Computed example of a mutant assay.
Amino acid sequence: MNAAVSSHGAALSPDAARLKAVRASLEAISPAVWLRAQDESGPLIEARADYGEIVVLARFSEHASPDEVAFAADAPDTVRFLLRLLDQAFAKIRTLRPEAQRDNPAIGEPAARSPKNFAAECALKCQDARFKVYLEEKHGLERPLTNERVEQRVRSILGVQSRKELNDGGQAAERWKALRADFAAWLKVNR
């Protein structure tokens, strides 16, 4: 069995690989607006297809409880909510980590600061559904909002052939910082 690999070549942990798969699954069914309904055959979940027609996604037996039907129908929203919480937690951890590493009490002097890994940060942003919508609205990213299209658009915006160039410093890193700041400003308005 092949291990999942991150965008910078390192093998992902099983949990990270599973999280990546969950994000990809949610992206594949986007916008995933599911509605509970009922017909003569019983409870069901339906959604609107690309051209507005209603399609039945799932039917339940008469033994399914309303809570079970609701749980299944709400699954995409629940997953989006949990991924958003994880993204916020990871962002907070990244902001706190430098503070914890600032002083190394075992040595009694400041710890050496590792350079910022903008390439890894960019790779994470490219998987964020909100970042994809931002690129669509502000930078003309065309649908479907796949990871590959996002990565290509970001490389084009930043004027790089590879995200690795972001770690070389210079103009590419500055353009990434500006794009990241514009995205953060967009998020504040579009929450």
Results as ranks from 00 to 15, higher is better:
Met1Lys: 12
Met1Thr: 12
Asn2Glu: 11
Ala3Trp: 10
Ala4Trp: 09
Ser7Lys: 02
Gly9Asn: 12
Leu12Arg: 09
Asp15Pro: 05
Ala17Gln: 07
Ala21Lys: 11
Ala21Trp: 02
Val22Lys: 06
Val22Tyr: 07
Ser25Val: 09
Ile29Gly: 07
Ser30Ile: 05
Ala32Glu: 08
Trp34Tyr: 15
Trp34Gly: 01
Leu35Tyr: 15
Arg36Thr: 12
Ala37Thr: 15
Ala37Leu: 14
Ala37Lys: 14
Gln38Ala: 13
Asp39Lys: 14
Glu40Asp: 14
Ser41Gln: 14
Gly42Ala: 09
Gly42His: 09
Pro43Lys: 00
Pro43Met: 02
Ala47Ile: 01
Ala47Gly: 00
Val56Met: 13
Val56Ala: 10
Ala58Tyr: 06
Phe60Asn: 01
Ser61Ala: 14
Glu62Cys: 08
Glu62Gln: 14
His63Ser: 15
Ala64Gln: 01
Ala64Asn: 05
Ser65Phe: 02
Pro66Glu: 12
Asp74Cys: 02
Asp74His: 08
Ala75Asp: 06
Ala75Tyr: 04
Pro76Ser: 10
Thr78Val: 03
Val79Asp: 00
Leu82Ser: 11
Leu83Val: 02
Leu83Glu: 04
Leu85Asp: 10
Leu86Ala: 09
Leu86Ser: 08
Gln88Thr: 00
Gln88Pro: 08
Lys92Tyr: 11
Thr95Arg: 07
Thr95Ile: 06
Pro98Arg: 11
Glu99Leu: 15
Pro105His: 06
Pro105Ile: 04
Ala106Cys: 10
Ala106Tyr: 13
Gly108Trp: 08
Arg113Val: 15
Ser114Asn: 06
Ser114Thr: 14
Asn117Arg: 15
Phe118Lys: 05
Ala120Asp: 10
Glu121Met: 09
Glu121Gly: 11
Cys122Tyr: 06
Leu124Thr: 11
Leu124Phe: 13
Lys125Tyr: 13
Cys126Trp: 02
Asp128His: 10
Arg130Trp: 08
Arg130Tyr: 03
Arg130Pro: 01
Arg130Leu: 09
Tyr134Phe: 15
Glu137Phe: 07
Lys138Val: 04
His139Lys: 10
Leu141Lys: 04
Glu142His: 03
Glu142Pro: 07
Glu142Ser: 05
Glu142Asp: 05
Pro144Phe: 03
Asn147Val: 09
Glu148Asn: 12
Gln152Val: 12
Val154Tyr: 02
Ser156Phe: 11
Val160Asp: 04
Val160Leu: 01
Leu166Thr: 02
Leu166Ala: 03
Leu166Met: 06
Asp168Ile: 03
Asp168Gly: 07
Gly169Arg: 01
Gly169His: 06
Glu174Val: 02
Glu174Leu: 13
Trp176Val: 05
Lys177Asn: 07
Asp182Asn: 01
Ala184Asp: 13
Ala184Cys: 04
Leu187Tyr: 01
Val189Cys: 01
Arg191Ile: 00
